[in-house]
Lab assay of single mutants.
Amino acid sequence: GTLHLNGVTVKVPSLEKAIKAAKKFAKKYNLEVQVHGNTVHVH
Rank of each mutant, 00 (worst) to 15 (best):
Y29E: 01
N6P: 11
V40S: 02
L15Y: 05
G1F: 15
K27I: 07
K24Y: 12
Y29G: 01
N38P: 05
F25V: 05
K27Y: 03
V8L: 13
K23V: 10
S14E: 04
N30D: 09
A22D: 00
T2C: 14
E16N: 08
V12Y: 15
S14H: 08
N6W: 15
K24W: 12
K20Y: 08
F25W: 13
F25S: 01
H43Y: 14
K20G: 05
G1P: 14
K24A: 13
E32V: 14
G1M: 11
L15A: 02
I19Q: 01
H4D: 05
E16Q: 10
T9I: 15
S14C: 10
A18W: 09
Y29S: 00
K24E: 11
P13R: 10
V42Y: 06
E32I: 14
E16T: 09
K28Q: 07
E16L: 07
L15M: 08
K28S: 01
V10C: 13
A21E: 08
T39R: 10
H43V: 13
K20L: 11
K24M: 09
V10F: 15
T2S: 07
H4W: 11
G1S: 10
G37D: 05
F25Y: 13
L31M: 11
L31E: 00
V33K: 00
V12G: 03
A21N: 04
T39G: 03
L5E: 03
T9V: 15
E16W: 10
H4R: 06
H43G: 11
V12L: 14
K23Q: 12
V8G: 04
N38M: 10
L31Y: 06
S14N: 13
V42Q: 02
N38C: 00
Q34E: 13
H36R: 08
V10K: 05
H41F: 14
L3Q: 04
K20T: 09
K11M: 12
Y29D: 00
N30I: 06
V10G: 02
K28N: 03
N30T: 04
V8R: 07
L3Y: 00
G7R: 06
A26W: 09
H41N: 08
K17M: 13
E16F: 05
H41W: 15
H41L: 13
K28A: 05
